[in-house]
Each structure stands twice: as C-alpha cells, then as structure tokens.
Design a binder for these strands. Structure first.
Lengths: 343, 343
DNA sequence: TTGAAAGCGATACCAG
DNA sequence: CTGGTATCGCTTTCAA
C-alpha cells in the first residue's frame, strides 16, 4: 500500500513551510491568495487527505464517531432504529460504529468499554434483556462521554434516554381488545426483569382493572426469549397452556409481534378463526405483522424516530452542561384484521 | 467532561519515567516486576485507558476499523450480511463502521471517500443498484486500503469480491418450476444494468432453453425498485401485464422475495390458488418468505456467510501482496408450498 | 532495568 | 502574510 501524502510533501514540492500549507488548506485568513491556490492545486494533484488521527490528537477532540450497541441487527425494530440513527448521524457529520450484544450482558459491557477506549464521542445503548448495570457503570462512562439509553429503561436511571411509553401502549392495546368486545383477555409477556416486559404487563393490568374486569392471574403467561425464533416458539408454548385452561381466553395481548407469530401458528393448527375465535394485538409493528394471515393489529413504536432523537440528544449532551434529555414516544394503534368489533 | 488519565499522570504519581510506564503497560520485557506491578495498580486506580489516536498515530497504523457500505440496513439480506460481518470482525478485533447508500450512487461515493479519509483499514462494499464506478475509482482506493465488493459484481472487476452465484441460483429456481411440471414460466426481473438482475435473467433464460422450451419474450418483465415496498408494488404491476397476456403464465420466477410479495397480493385479489393455479419461486429467503401464505419456495443466499467471508478476505488482503480473493456462494433451494409437483 | 529524546502528522502561537 | 517551534499522547531507539 503506497504512502498517504502529508503536509510535508506539499510543503517540499512548493518550497514553503508546513505551517503555510496547513493554513491554506484550512481556509484561514492571513494567506496570500496565490499561495493558497498553489497549495490547493498541489494537494489535489497528489491526492492529499488529512490524517484524522493527527488532527484529532492535536485538537484533542474525539473522532466524530458515535458508538451504537444493539442486541440484534436482524431484528426489525433495531434495524429501523439503526436506520434512524444513521440518517441523523450523517446529518450531523458523525460516523456510526455498530456492535451487537446478542442480549448478552458481558458482551454488552465489553462493547461499552471498547467503544469508550476507542474514543467515540458518545454511546447510544439499546440495552440487552439481561443487562445488569448497577447504578455505577453507566454514570462512570457518562462522565466522560454522553450516553443515551434507547428503548429500554433502567430502574431509577437518571441519564439521557429515549424510549417508548410501554405502559401506555400496553394499556391502549388491551383497551382496544376490550372495546372490540373480547371478554377474556390473556397476556403473553416477557421477563419481568426487563423494563419493557414489566411496563407492558403493568399497562395490561391497569386496563383490565379500569374496565371493571377481574384479573385472572392464570391469564398472564410470562416467557423468555432472545430472538424472533425463540419468541415464536414461546408464543406457541404459551398457547398450549392458555388453551388448556378451564376457561380459555378469547383474546391475547402479546408483548411482541414475534410472540404473536407463535400464537398464529397455534391457532391455525387448532383451526381457530382469527379474529372471531381469537383476537390478537401485538406490539412493534414489525415487518412480519403485515404479512401474517390475517394481518396483525399491533402498536407502532416509531423506532426510526427514536433513533433520530437519540442522536440529537447525544449531540446536545456534548455541549450541554450536565443537562439531561429524556423522552418517551407514544405508540400508535395500527388497526388490522386480527381484531374485530364483536358488538 | 473530566480529563482522561495519561501516561504522564501515572509516571508523576510513581516518580518514574513515561517510558517505564509505557513498557509496564505493554507487557514488554526488561522491566522490574515490582515496578510493573505498581504501574498496573496505579493505572487501574486512576482508570487509565490508552489514547488510541496517539497509539495509532505513533505506530502509523490505521485504527482497527473496517467500513461497511450497504444500500439499506432494514433489508433482511443486508442485515443478515451485516450480522455476519460484525461477528467475524469482532473475532478479528476490528470495529465496524456502517453507512447506508440508499441505492444512491453519489451517497455511496461520498461514503467511500469519507471512510477512506477517516482512516479505516478497509472497506466492504455492497454496491447500490445504480452504482456507476468506472474501472478507476475502485482501484484507486484499492491501492491504499483493501476493498471487498459483496453481493453485486462490476463488469470486468478484478478485485476482491464475495457474491452469490446468481446465474446458477436462477437456473435452479427455474429448473425446479419446470420439474414440477409448470409449462409456462414467466420471470419478473430487475434492471439489467445491475449484475444481479442481469445474471438471474441469464440463468432463467438458460434453464428454459436447456429444457427445450421456447422462450417467449413477453414472459419477461423487468422492473425498477429501490426498496421492499417498491418491490412489492412492481411485482403487483408486473402481474397486471403478465395476466392480461393471451396465454398467461402458470408460474413465475421472481428475482427477489420482495417482488413475490406483490405477486401474492395480485393472486389473492384474483382468487388464484398458489401453487395450483400459479407456482412461484423467489430469491433470497427473506424473513417474509416463510410468513407468506402459502410459504414461499425461494433460494437461500447465505448472506451471513458472505458477510463473514468478506471480512476474512479483507483481513487476508491486508497482508497479501496484491493477491486477490474471490468467491461465489451457491444458493440453495428452500422448498416450501408455493410450488407443487403437478405430475 | 531505566530514562532522555526523537518523531508520528497536524495545528496554534508568536515572532518576524 | 509567512515560518519556526512547541505540543497533542504515545512508542521506540539509544545510552546510561
């Protein structure tokens, strides 16, 4: 690989000082127009590109890079989010470094360290399910570079975050089923330790209660899964239990669309008609939801907007003096054919 | 944001020289065990992290970063590929910088420039559809850092690449339809200027010919689309024309799964039975293909493996003396229910 | 076993 | 308007 041209090369070729070359290239005042022209021409000729390492080192600035940590790029929600992040980052002239935690807490921690060591200007973290930061680690990094937590929340977390109002979304999803006239509504949820699972369960509970129904704890089925495939499997298994109850549910609010896929599978096998025999509402508006048969009613989470906003918060945090930025997006009901008005 | 600790801080605290500290931290020989211990302890105490900019500058090495340029992260094929890339990169201790071209050639060029200026150690490029590199641009960068082209090919391109054997895949997809007993097979393809569209069309043609059928040019419908949504739309429109022919086709080989989605939509509207009235084979084994009703027979492209291999080639190219690495993956038929044996 | 000094490539200050 | 010199944080000879 040939050498990259440097200031010195231009200086030598034109018989002027490095300083002058630097000035010319950086559009400084105090430079002879002719000199500048000659420098620019030469730079182009030998294809000079500044060495970012040197520049950043000298200016003691970080590189224009923001590190993004997500559990799984293949997951529709995260790839949408990543797209939003990249768009906004590009607008602000930042590069995007990406790493996957695969819902593994150790890997996540290592990524945070590595990114931080690398010298990113900030970190956007979509925490893994099993993320177990005590209240210390995050703040420590936070002192050196801005961190924005996306999607999931930590208990008592006081830093920057952008998330989805999971409680509200779950409440409205459940409410929709109630308004359709479904009388017995089950919830297939996910591990309570995860803020998302936790909040959605709370929203479900609140909606049931507020509508004067009695909450049957048998109707709540919590499961564990780390990717789409496992989600579908768990959804299927959950149905097994729910439909062997004495009074099986007539509708299900599923914590994610992935799980709903498993529910569909079960329903199909048992010859149940969706939405007449069984109403379903998912969460995410994942790509798959529109292809299911019938298309799945679900909650849109605005992943892309969340990504954009996260970058903006990181950017503001760079210059903000300790100010903290937080926002919850309200999910929207996407009405499709897995629910129907029974009244 | 507080200052990052540096060698000097440790040196001062222990009253030794910076050189010694550096040696201790870098596991060099010629260092007193006790001194080393004290340095390590102090480093930990004040949370010392080397400044990568300075290290790389001094060693005049690039940062351990590989730049990845893809058209669209949300697209299942590219997110799978990206996942493969990230896994392999992590194993080799490289960071991954990601940018999206959105199938825009200018944006793609800018990304290549920016990444190159930034100082990445190499670039993995999944070219956009409208990528129009003359034979110059790519080689120019290639002289400075390794470039691996993934997925699509350029005419007469002589550099590193990893792709899918599109001709072969298309041939086998078409052959499968023929073996099922479908007599009139149409092809919905994509812009001929794109190597993928081109090769798949060629494969289709060859299969038809080799089986002694006469190729009706009316059965070939070429369309343009830049994302999944447009693909589905174009597939739908293509059907409009194909099924208004005097002798409509009984099967379709679709250049991508996205397009097949539009075909399904059309078939459903017209009450056609898939696979009896219409056999369909797609290409990609995108996530959606298994959720379509009936599930779509398609060609698996091994996107993740391609991603991994691309990183390995980049890595080899770093130290290879001009040696070029090339590989085509053979796609696999994934048999589902959109085709059936009619014999 | 340790330290002083040079230098990676670029920028900033100050003197001329 | 231009050039010399110090410096960013670190590694690497070369001497001691």
């Amino acid at each position: 690989m040939p050498q990259r041209a440097k200031l010195k090369d231009i200086a030598k070729a034109l018989n002027i000082s490095i300083t002058t070359v630097s000035r010319a290239l950086n559009n400084k005042a105090d430079i002879n127009a002719l000199t500048k022209e000659r420098v620019l021409a030469k730079a182009k000729e030998i294809d000079y590109k500044p060495n970012n390492l040197a520049v950043s080192l000298r200016k003691s600035s970080t590189l224009n890079v923001v590190g993004v940590i997500i559990p799984d790029v293949k997951h529709n929600f995260f790839s949408k989010m990543l797209q939003g992040i990249m768009e906004q980052a590009q607008d602000l002239n930042y590069f995007v470094l990406v790493g996957e935690s695969h819902h593994n807490s150790d890997r996540e921690k290592k990524l945070i360290d590595d990114f931080s060591d690398y010298g990113v200007s900030g970190i956007l973290l979509a925490p893994s399910k099993h993320s177990d930061f005590d209240k210390n680690l995050l703040p420590i990094i936070h002192k050196r570079i801005p961190v924005v937590v996306v999607d999931r929340m930590y208990d008592n977390y006081e830093g920057n975050f952008v998330n989805c109002n999971d409680f509200d979304g779950a409440y409205r999803a459940t409410q929709h089923l109630l308004e359709c006239g479904y009388k017995t509504i089950a919830h297939i949820g996910s591990s309570d330790s995860w803020s998302i699972g936790h909040e959605r369960l709370k929203g479900y509970r609140a909606a049931i209660k507020d509508h004067g129904l009695i909450l049957d704890e048998n109707y709540i089925h919590i499961c564990n899964f780390n990717n789409k495939e496992e989600g579908a499997e768990e959804g299927y298994k959950a149905c097994h239990r729910l439909f062997s109850l004495k009074h099986p549910p007539s509708a299900i609010f599923s914590v994610t669309d992935d799980i709903a896929v498993g529910v569909y599978q079960y329903a199909k096998e048992k010859g149940m008609d969706i939405p007449r025999d069984l109403g379903i509402v998912g969460f995410s508006n994942a790509e798959v939801s529109q292809y299911l048969n019938p298309p799945l009613t679900t909650m849109e989470q605005f992943a892309q907007d969340m990504g954009r906003e996260a970058v903006q918060y990181f950017y503001k945090a760079l210059s903000a003096n300790g100010q903290v930025f937080q926002k919850s997006f309200n999910p929207h009901l996407v009405l499709r054919s897995s629910t129907i008005n029974l009244n």
